[in-house]
Design a protein around this nucleic acid. Structure first.
Length: 417
RNA sequence: GUGGGUGUAGUUCAACGGCAGAGCACCGGAUUGUGGUUCCGGGCGUUGUGGGUUCGAAUCCCAUCACCCACCCCA
């Protein structure tokens, strides 16, 4: 084979397309039920947008971004995530000046140069929600409710919602300090990765999987004990709203978001059956981001979910999704004359919106009937020499094998019932 | 970026140094116009790719690519 698809990418073939379309439709409907509107941004942006928003030393910026420069030497990156572009658009289009809240959703491909694995790709598809312009704790719960309603509408059951608060910048700084203080005496016992985490992102120390590092975890200070009064109150309110809305959750102080812009609420939806890449959605509040990239200081909350992992989870749970569309009728025509006469009838059916299938390459009656059957069509319309002579045709129900003879003009009426 | 596993027909898998096979799927047929069950017939596929060892390689060795698993990271 001469040409191969790039590593970590995949084709969505027709059989799968139907499923993707279905899942996307449901997401659009659920988002609409909360009054969110779709926003579509380019798949590449100035590289600096992501460097600035995600954090210079985040993994995404340091080693996972697809960068390129164009003919004029401008530095771009294929978007590794969806929030920064939406916020860029929000600011660029002066939505921050109107004072109104923006309730937005998006979906589309994201790109990260990473080692492919089950549920992890270099081009992957995300859906996301952004509510920009309110710090009200109700909206933290609303945004989570959108995701949970969506998953419920699809029929996914084996999942858990984990939630945490990382506080505002001040709380986070205090907490990082407390963590460093706690870990300092053990520094030499930590794995090399954790030595780095100690410097760069102390909170990551908490979810290390190395046994010798894990032992320090249970006595470690908790983020929740380092929230200031406002942050503590906000978090308590969010949880109360979730309770009221009937959304089950588990508070997990170890939940950490990968990108630098998160504040306060952080959450993740986890499906254990997926293995190592078990997070199907994650998000949180990002009150500092809008100002960070040049807009008016504006609070916001959002999340992003991965379609591939979602589809995988649905498959593992045995949820059935729509398959390829089957014909309503399959045309069976015998003889030269009938094979021409069938065409205007098919045209009438198609104009009425029915999927009518015909294959001129099969000529024998048997072969055509067989094809009608394997196509999964509900009906066969049969036009042979006898019918042609009588000006009739046969409408055969392929489910119960009942067939009737009728005028061609009556077919449409019969199918519409 | 690190470590491990696997690549054979459209697909799921055999063959593990000696002629590359089977199930499913697909196509055709079982006397003149009726599908689903049954029966019969239909397979040269660069054994992922490129080297090497050998009289002989799908099989052993090396490299490379891809996928899978774990780390890392995250959706």
């Amino acid at each position: 084979m001469m040409y191969k698809i790039p590593r970590g990418t995949f084709d969505i073939l027709p059989a799968d397309s139907v499923k993707w379309q279905y899942v996307k439709d449901i997401f659009r409907k659920v988002a609409a039920s909360f009054g969110y509107s779709e926003i579509t941004t380019p798949i590449f942006e100035m590289a600096e947008l992501f460097e600035r928003s995600s954090g210079e030393n985040s993994d995404v910026v340091q080693k996972e971004m697809y960068r390129f420069s164009d003919q004029k030497g401008r530095n771009f990156a294929l978007r590794p995530e969806g929030t920064a572009p939406v916020v860029r658009s929000y600011v660029e289009n002066h939505m921050d000046k109107s004072g109104a809240r923006s309730k937005l959703f998006y979906m589309g491909p994201m790109f990260r140069y990473d080692r492919p694995q089950a549920g992890r790709y270099r081009q992957f598809y995300q859906y996301g929600i952004e509510l920009i312009g309110s710090n009200h704790p109700y909206f933290d719960a609303e945004v989570i409710a959108i995701e949970m309603n969506f998953l419920k509408a699809l029929g996914l059951k084996e999942l858990r919602l984990e939630i945490n608060s990382v506080g505002c910048a001040n709380c986070a700084k205090d907490y990082d300090e407390a963590l460093r203080e706690y870990y300092r005496p053990h520094l030499n016992d930590l794995c090399p990765d954790c030595q780095k985490r100690y410097q760069q992102k102390p909170r990551r120390l908490l979810d290390c999987k190395v046994p010798s590092c894990k032992v320090f975890r249970k006595a470690a200070p908790s983020q929740l004990d380092y929230l200031d009064e406002d942050c503590r109150l906000h978090f308590a309110e969010v949880l109360k709203y979730l309770d009221t809305m009937g959304i089950a959750y588990k508070v997990n102080p170890a939940i950490v978001r990968g990108l630098d812009y998160y504040t306060n609420t952080a959450f993740e939806v986890i499906v254990d059956a997926l293995g190592a890449q078990n997070s199907i959605a994650g998000g949180g509040r990002y009150n500092a981001l809008i100002a960070e990239i040049g807009g008016k200081d504006t609070p916001a909350i959002g999340f992003a979910g991965g379609f591939e992992r979602l589809l995988l989870a649905l498959e593992k749970e045995g949820v059935t999704l729509p398959e390829t569309v089957r014909p309503k009728v399959y045309a069976v025509a015998i003889g030269e004359e009938a094979r021409r006469a069938i065409l205007p009838i098919l045209q009438t059916l198609r104009e009425a919106g029915f999927y009518a299938e015909y294959n001129p390459e099969k000529t024998s009656f048997k072969a055509q009937m067989k094809a009608a059957d394997t196509s999964g069509a509900d009906y066969a319309i049969i036009l042979g020499e006898d019918e042609l002579a009588q000006g009739k045709l046969i409408l055969k129900n392929l489910r119960d094998s009942v067939q009737i003879s009728l005028d061609p003009a009556e077919v449409l009426h019969n199918l519409s019932q």
